[in-house]
Write a protein that binds this DNA or RNA. Sequence first.
DNA 1: ACCTCGTGTCATCGA
DNA 2: GGTCGATGACACGAG
Length: 483
Amino acid sequence: MCSAANCMLPLRKNCEGLANLGRLNGGASMSFGASGLRMHRHPQDPDMDFTWQELMAITELQDLEVQNDSQYENGPYHHMEPPVSVGGFGMNQSNTGTLTQECEATSMSYEGSYHEVMQPCQRLGPVMDSHYAHSGSQLSSRFLPGAQSLQPPLMSLLEHMNLVGASHGFEKDSIGHSHSKHQVAIDDLESDSGLSLGSSPPLASPENGVASISTYVGTEPGLVYAEGEMEAGLGEHCRMRDSLGYPMDYHHPHHPMNHYPAAPTTSYFPMGPSLPPIHQHHQSHPVYPLKQQQILPSTALHLSGPGMPGGRSGSCSSSYSKPKVHSAPAPLSRDERRAMALKIPFPLEKIVNLPVDDFNELLTQYTLSDAQLALVRDIRRRGKNKVAAQNCRKRKLENIVHLEGELGQLRAQREHLARERLDYQRSMAIIKCRLSELYAKVFSQLRDEEGHPYSLDEYSLQQTNDGNVYLVPRNATLDEEYQ
DNA sequence: ACCTCGTGTCATCGA
DNA sequence: GGTCGATGACACGAG
């Protein structure tokens, strides 16, 4: 035991709970401690029992405050400002912290938000009890703009202080409900949106994406978690795109959804046996001069001929006839022209879409020159790469849209957490103010053996782990024996 | 003339 | 080693 221990005056033992506080503090005197110092109270201050209860309630809050702090520290949002602490008021669970006398003595640590609250709080101070007793709900609206966001421990205390009023229920519902909804939104976002090429539009421009995510970017609490409606997922996505006029099916002739041989309906070769005769998808194909198209024989690649399997000439011949649906038929691509020039005896569709084994088998069925063989392989490579590039670009745009949605959600979450933090700081400032008043009140009732009051400048209250509260000189700390 | 956008193509990498 | 898909980079044409 250190020397300071002789001056430590255990005031009370609060482990029996608030129910016993009245009895413990209701006595005419409190004689504690090894020093034998006796503290005398004024005879039955009618406010003292309530003061003690309130004081201890605030003290016990400090444990809960730690939990609140850890919530902020462990949460996804890390703010640069340190959490507010009321430890400066003493009554610590350990041996740290000392009492302070005035609200302004602690206001330094609050910077912005605390000053906002302290002024009305101090102005209210002398008549605070009456306000608590008679107009708590008004205080809640006037001085606790963020009281509805208090965590349950704070709410409990403020209820005890009659500071909160009817806003409690709202906050519980607000926080709890919004968090659960928020989780749903995260789950939805984390769910693989999938690269559903078949349901993706040919183009998903970033502008469209921004328009779609505007739902998630909310600045108001009510809007913050509206992204939970994302659960509609791809279906909603599709509807949105549909409303934008995009086709829901990606009718690309070589789209992975159109697997060979299930969908041999189109071809790079515009004259396949069962092909739609026009390029419905590739509208960007260069429009070659009419002169160039005119020199292309409509039956340039006759499948009927030497080396061709019999019985296919007719259909194949017709398959290479130019479509006559439109007066201005789609131009041929470079590879198509090359294929016709080299008389490649099978459609480009097969060249591109056949599996490698079937493709090799197809090559064995024909006698091709080296130039033809090289061209066929180039056509196959370029055709596959073209589809791959299209898929890649679609995927890239979809990723951009998805990331913008996540960004909006995270921004909304950040705003929500910032508001919660501000509310928490304001509430703690009010609590500290009230706590300082309570300590001043307690000290005003304590007397030493000679009847002199203890000074808050010289003494502080410290609480041990077992709940004993000691009056400790400020230049001393509680000995471990008391912990 | 310049920019943007869409597309095709090539080169490269990893599976 | 060949094939395939993905992707960055580049070129080109259209608007």
